[in-house]
Amino acid sequence: MPTGEPICPTCGQALTGGGLVLMDREEDGKRTCRALWKCEERHLWWVWADRPASALDPCPDTELFVD
Rank of each mutant, 00 (worst) to 15 (best):
C59P: 02
W48P: 02
G4M: 15
A53N: 13
R34H: 13
W46V: 00
P58W: 00
P2C: 11
C8P: 04
W46L: 04
P58Q: 09
P58K: 10
D57H: 06
T16R: 04
R31L: 00
E41S: 15
E26C: 00
L15N: 13
C11E: 05
V66F: 06
A55Y: 08
D24F: 02
H43Q: 07
D67E: 09
R51E: 09
G4N: 15
K30S: 01
S54M: 11
C8F: 06
Q13N: 11
M23R: 15
P9E: 01
G29A: 11
V47T: 09
E41K: 12
L15G: 11
E5P: 12
L44R: 00
P52V: 06
A55N: 13
P52R: 03
P6R: 08
R51K: 13
H43T: 09
C33H: 14
R25H: 07
G12H: 03
K38M: 13
A49N: 14
K30E: 02
E41R: 12
E5D: 15
E27F: 07
S54F: 08
H43S: 08
L44F: 03
P52M: 01
C33T: 13
R42D: 14
E40Y: 05
A35C: 08
R51V: 02
M1F: 12
E5T: 15
R51Q: 12
L15R: 13
E41C: 12
D67I: 04
K30G: 00
D24S: 01
D28W: 00
G17M: 00
P60E: 13
P58A: 13
E26P: 05
I7T: 13
D61S: 08
L22K: 11
